[in-house]
Computed example of a mutant assay.
Amino acid sequence: MALQPSLRPLIIAGSGSAPHTLDVFLDYVCPYSAKLALAIENVLVPLFAEGGKYDGKVKVIFRNQVQPWHASSTWVHEASLAVARVAPQQFWPFSLALFKQQGEYFDIPTSTITPTQVRANLAKLAGDVIGNNLAGDVKELLDLKGSPNGGNAVTDELKYTIKFSRQNGIHVSPTVLWDGLIANEISSSWGEKEWTEFLAAKVAV
């Protein structure tokens, strides 16, 4: 699957040249996405890393899946894209931090504060992960600027991720593609056993 060069940090596991691709469409405020993200970190990342069983065989691409029925979904995905710009190697650690603290960005907790305050909180969380010296850079990217309806510095990247999902018919999170086709059998409840069996059937070691 395609990935524009500026979004290379979204390759969260494996080598970018690996022949097989696992595209994972996740929303930071989706509990099921959080479960799958933890499985990726605990099960798949070691398998696809250098020296792992599937080293050089499979790459995992994170696909930002904005769910507009959650008002904060846009803001948390903007923050991840800002971190990808400021500290590319920290995109996945920041994503994991977002998933672990996703409850703070659910509908009710964010209903009593402004979007500007939400973005400021996200920049602070980014600082906790990538260093407080870079938190200001993240906040600057998230600040609205330009025309009254012009978005912010990562709006173009956000548009790309949304258009990519739409043109590929991705509607819900999590959705997982294996080599470009939806793998409906993959579940957020999968653990090491299920993933091991899936990879054994799909990848020649």
Rank of each mutant, 00 (worst) to 15 (best):
M1A: 10
P9G: 01
L10G: 00
A13G: 07
A13I: 03
S15R: 15
P19N: 03
H20T: 03
D23E: 15
Y32I: 07
S33R: 07
L36A: 00
A39F: 03
I40H: 02
E41R: 14
E41L: 06
V43E: 12
V45Q: 10
V45N: 04
F48V: 04
Y54G: 00
G56F: 06
V60I: 15
V60F: 00
V60N: 01
I61G: 01
R63G: 09
Q65G: 02
V66Q: 02
V66M: 03
W69Q: 09
V76N: 01
V76L: 04
H77W: 09
E78P: 09
E78T: 02
E78D: 05
L81P: 06
A82Y: 03
R85D: 04
A87C: 06
P88V: 11
P93H: 08
F94Y: 11
L96V: 14
L96D: 00
L96H: 04
K100Y: 09
K100F: 06
Q102F: 12
G103T: 12
Y105H: 08
Y105P: 04
I108D: 10
P109W: 15
P109N: 05
P109C: 07
T110H: 02
T114L: 13
T114E: 05
P115E: 02
P115M: 12
P115L: 11
T116D: 15
T116V: 15
V118R: 10
L122K: 09
L122T: 09
A123S: 11
A123R: 04
K124T: 14
G127Y: 14
D128F: 12
V129I: 13
V129P: 04
I130M: 11
G131P: 12
G131Y: 02
N132D: 15
A135G: 10
A135N: 07
G136I: 14
G136A: 09
G136L: 13
D137C: 05
D137A: 14
V138D: 03
E140S: 13
L141G: 00
K145M: 08
G146Q: 10
G146C: 12
N149R: 15
N149H: 14
G150E: 13
G151E: 06
T155R: 08
D156Y: 09
D156Q: 14
E157D: 15
E157Q: 13
F164N: 05
F164V: 05
S165D: 11
I170K: 08
H171Y: 12
V172S: 14
S173C: 08
P174S: 11
V176S: 00
L177F: 15
D179H: 04
L181N: 11
L181I: 13
A183C: 09
I186E: 02
S189P: 12
S189M: 05
G191M: 07
E192I: 07
E192M: 08
E197L: 12
L199E: 00
L199W: 01
A201T: 13
K202T: 00
V205K: 03
